[in-house]
Nucleic acid binder design. Structure first.
Length: 505
RNA sequence: GGCGCAUUCGUCUAGCUGGUCAAGGACAUCAGAUUCUCAUUCUGAAGAUCAAGGGUUCGAAUCCCUUAUGCGCUACCA
């Protein structure tokens, strides 16, 4: 059996869309499951849309995600080069082959001519199609005399090469996800394969590269399904065995319908790109999963389940598990809406599963943003205590700031509800009890303070929350004695006095 | 407009070879438990007549047809 080789072939026209990441992921899972190769090919045949930095961005994004390519741009391999712009010289011969064998023809129509034709058709509520019925009326090597064509070519007149569909032919694409999709060639447009700038279009380059790189399976987005018949025909024209096709359902925006776009992310407050991206032209910044505090495994897991599932009730799966369980057969046929809440849940799960050591540098960076530096031992202790409360890395600060800096303000609502007349005196008494324990022991402190609360018949909720307000500034956080244990008795005493001074002057 | 693809709880989906599905799970929602608070956690509830309408069949979410809706493509972009 043929070796499994799949490719992810983005166009470097900007940051990598999260839908593209999912396509890459599915390619990766399929390749690894079958002991195959996962290739990165850059499809930069459109020089006008090239964006500097996009290629580097793509490579960095996959590094962050932990999806490793076996071959391709940035890695190398025996089938290179892997950038289509660098393969430019080889495409011409394939276009020529098609020309010589009657599968293609030269077309000299100008953009203005084509535009006029389209407008004309539009006026009649039709669509202009360059096909068997209209070719003769256009300016090409089929309608022009041999001499004329020759003269034009020799004079260096600009031309494109178009595919020549046989008339009235049913073309069937076998898709691994959708089954057979058949379309008649009369409905198809004679696509441009080779552009006047000497570059192939996607269609030609794609087929030539997939074949020469021995790609066995083409797993790509559903937006390619309409052009798959062309690709099938191209393989046939070249006499090559076509790879297997699988067209993935689209990733939809969370509200309404339609493809998930950059603007949806901005509008709904979630990233559409793996990494933050700054547009080199406009300077616009688009948020990334990494910068928003997602763990790459969470992104992978969430993405894997958007359009596929193992058929069991298991939802938390690392890459290795996904590789084992993945199956093209069980990919959904319909588009999946991105769901921010579920993404948040996944990330929370993975943060809880992450080791404290791994979280340490990430959380330290968050503290640094707020001008806090601390020793690793203390930070690790706080991480162990608090990580189950954070859904995204940046939340760490708002959840734990009081472990590092004393509260400046006290939540007025909490104060109003919990702080009663006489609270200050009780807090001082309780503080004295806590200070009497040497060395400090949280269980002992708990015991003494509880005894005090019971003896004085205090309202537990009120007094303990007042204590908490003094230490934290709000009615939140882990157990009071955990906090005291962490920040120290001396700091606790200072915070209590400061709170009393501010709240009950 | 043409062509293609799709259609099960709000969302992701299980269901694919028809009966055990008066449709299961997860996220979200609501309620309860735990707790000094918040979060976590645990338990429970609500939530889809399977897009609609026709068939086929003793029996259909599962097979067939029609319609509707959504999406994709319709560039010398990928």
């Amino acid at each position: 059996m043929k070796k499994v080789r799949v490719r992810f072939a983005p166009s470097p026209t900007g940051p990598l869309h999260i839908g593209g990441v999912r396509t890459a992921l599915y390619n990766y899972l399929f390749a690894k499951q079958n002991g195959g190769d996962f290739i990165l090919r850059i499809e930069d045949t459109d020089q006008t849309r090239f964006v500097p930095g996009a290629e580097a961005y793509i490579i960095e994004a996959f590094q962050w995600l932990g999806l490793k390519f076996d071959e391709g741009v940035g890695i190398g391999g025996q089938y290179g080069p892997y950038r289509q712009s660098e393969r430019k010289p080889m495409y011409k011969q394939y276009a020529d082959y098609l020309l010589e064998n009657g599968w293609a023809y030269y077309a000299f129509d100008t953009a203005a001519d084509l535009d006029a034709k389209r407008k004309e058709a539009e006026a009649q509520k039709k669509t202009f199609q360059y096909d068997a019925t209209t070719r003769d009326g256009m300016c090409n090597s089929l309608s022009l005399s041999v001499e004329d064509v020759k003269a034009r070519l020799e004079s260096g007149a600009p031309y494109v090469v178009r595919f020549k569909y046989p008339a009235d032919l049913d073309i069937t694409v076998h898709d691994l996800i959708r089954g057979d999709v058949t379309i008649n060639s009369n409905l198809l447009d004679d696509k441009v394969l080779y552009k006047s700038d000497g570059m192939p279009t996607y269609h030609l380059a794609n087929i030539v590269d997939d074949h020469t790189m021995e790609v066995s399976h083409v797993i790509r987005g559903e937006e390619w399904l309409p052009s798959a018949p062309l690709h099938v025909m191209l393989y046939k024209a070249f006499g090559w065995e076509a790879p297997q096709f699988a067209h993935l359902p689209l990733l939809l925006k969370p509200d309404g319908n339609g493809k998930l776009s950059k603007r949806d992310g901005d509008r709904l407050g979630f990233p559409v790109f793996p990494l933050q991206w700054t547009d080199p032209k406009s300077g616009d910044v688009s948020s990334g999963y990494r910068e928003s505090g997602y763990l790459p495994e969470a992104v992978i897991n969430m993405l894997a389940l958007l359009g596929w599932n193992p058929g069991t009730e298991q939802e938390i799966m690392d890459l290795d598990t996904l590789v084992k369980l993945f199956s093209i057969d069980s990919i959904s046929k319909s588009g999946a809406k991105f769901n921010l809440e579920k993404a948040r849940w996944f990330n929370h799960q993975y943060i809880q599963m992450a080791s404290d050591d791994r979280l340490l540098p990430m959380f330290a960076a968050e503290l640094a943003k707020h001008g806090v530096q601390t020793d690793d031992g203390y930070l690790k202790r706080i991480i162990a205590l608090m990580k189950e409360r954070v859904h995204f890395i940046p939340e760490f600060w708002e959840q734990t700031s009081y472990f590092f800096v004393a509260p400046e303000e006290y939540d007025p609502q909490a104060v109003k509800k919990r702080w009663k007349p006489g609270t200050a005196a009780h807090l001082r008494e309780m503080m004295a009890l806590v200070e009497s324990i040497k060395p400090f022991d949280k269980a002992k402190a708990d015991e003494l303070v509880m005894d005090y609360v019971h003896q004085h018949e205090l309202n537990m909720g009120a007094i303990m929350n007042s204590y908490r307000i003094a230490l934290v500034g709000a009615a939140k956080g882990p157990g009071i004695f955990e906090i005291i244990d962490a920040i120290g008795v001396g700091e606790t005493a200072r915070r209590v006095e400061r709170a009393i001074a501010v709240i009950e002057p």
